[in-house]
Design a protein around this nucleic acid. Structure first.
Lengths: 221, 221
DNA sequence: CAAAACCGACCGACCGGTCGGTTTTCGGGC
DNA sequence: GCCCGAAAACCGACCGGTCGGTCGGTTTTG
């Protein structure tokens, strides 16, 4: 019965979207299942028909989103040849996508943190995947002689943390403010800073990059 | 009546210490006031005699700790003359103290995150103070011509984020593990990476530093 | 002995999860 | 095309437990 299956999947997607919304607004603990249900235009019972419990919703949301993100980042890496450019690409993609979906970024970086040890473990594992991704690129760059040897694990962690912090500010910052920076300005500063941090300053420098809007496929969540 | 005041302060301190303990174990939401009371060897009523509410406890804990931390960092900065060395000192002090008090680090970086918007705002403000502190040192370094001009706000954010992420891993990481690094190794990598990121590689380099264990004063919390 | 400090039973709000009942869907018999 | 009946999907009142906060009473303190 592919009909029901499609329906079920669509319902689940709708609930996940609603959950992401509500959680990003209220935080995981204060996101009542009933409110998620309302946002998804269904009822508590409806939600519990599709998910075994509240916990499962966030876990599913986490995994689903992480999968999409990782796919994007891996694709971006594969599209580059030069090791340093690969690392740069991973960074750029992560920044761009997370910045576009502030809601998701909040859920990932903030809300899941205080949602209990099980979630911490999951988020930690997911972040580890991305850190590993960055680290691999750095390792390749070292192997290729493009940059000097270093503790790439720690450096990758630092990159991820820097990206996260800067993004956090960007997402959370009051909309007004005199010191407001555009995402592109932030990206450029961050890019230069991070590349310099591994001793790769005069990098390819795709300033007049023509690959903006790299693809048209839409599939939030 | 200085006697009562002293007693009151001592009670409050005891409750704050207990709160830090329980919160770091259970997380803010799951830290029941009654458990904090038990840990502080008092009762719920006793706690509510000293604090107007649960929220006030964490807020007080946050402010108190932030004050101590900032004092330490400012002292470390003041003790250096060279602009780059000042920035380096701020970083080193933050890393060392936070690493020493994992409990507090957890409360600051993790638990407060999911504890509601009011806490996010407070933690955000506190982090902003430290970011500002770092930024000032960077600005001075730029003014002194020690490093090239850059968007010091974003760079300071990145530094703070990098520090936080690396520290987070260090604090959270499973105790065993083959890739386990000592704090000193991490510090050195991070130091080099961050200094390089602002183009200050050949820094003073206090590798054979003699200022380890800079002071003996003990005052957790 | 009064005021400060402390105690803990209790209240009320909230929320995750359940469940009996209702509506919708859809394949197959006519 | 239409109807039907069963299964899938959905609904929301309700239950049980938790926990922040209250308050009248008790102990300690100066």
């Amino acid at each position: 019965m592919p009909v029901q299956q499609a329906r079920a999947r669509s319902r689940q997607q709708k609930i996940l979207r609603a959950a992401a919304d509500v959680i990003s607004r209220r935080g995981y603990r204060d996101a009542a299942v009933e409110e998620i249900a309302r946002e998804a235009e269904t009822s508590k019972g409806g939600v519990y028909f599709h998910f075994p419990g509240k916990e499962a919703i966030l876990l599913a949301l986490l995994d689903h989103t992480a999968g999409l993100l990782r796919g994007k980042v891996e694709a971006a890496i594969a599209a580059e040849a030069d090791p340093v450019a690969k690392a740069d690409a991973a960074l750029r993609t992560l920044l761009r996508i997370l910045a576009k979906h502030r809601t998701l970024a909040r859920v990932f970086a903030v809300e899941a943190a205080g949602a209990g040890p099980r979630f911490n473990a999951r988020v930690s594992a997911i972040q580890d995947e991305f850190i590993a991704l960055i680290r691999e690129q750095l390792d390749d760059a070292v192997a290729a002689g493009a940059i000097a040897p270093m503790d790439t694990t720690v450096v990758a962690q630092a990159w991820m943390g820097a990206l996260d912090a800067v993004l956090q500010r960007y997402v959370t910052a009051g909309s007004g403010g005199a010191g407001r920076r555009s995402l592109d300005e932030i990206h450029e500063t961050l890019r230069l800073t991070l590349l310099r941090s591994i001793g790769a300053e005069p990098a390819p420098r795709p300033t007049g990059n023509g690959d903006r809007q790299d693809s048209g496929d839409r599939h939030d969540h």
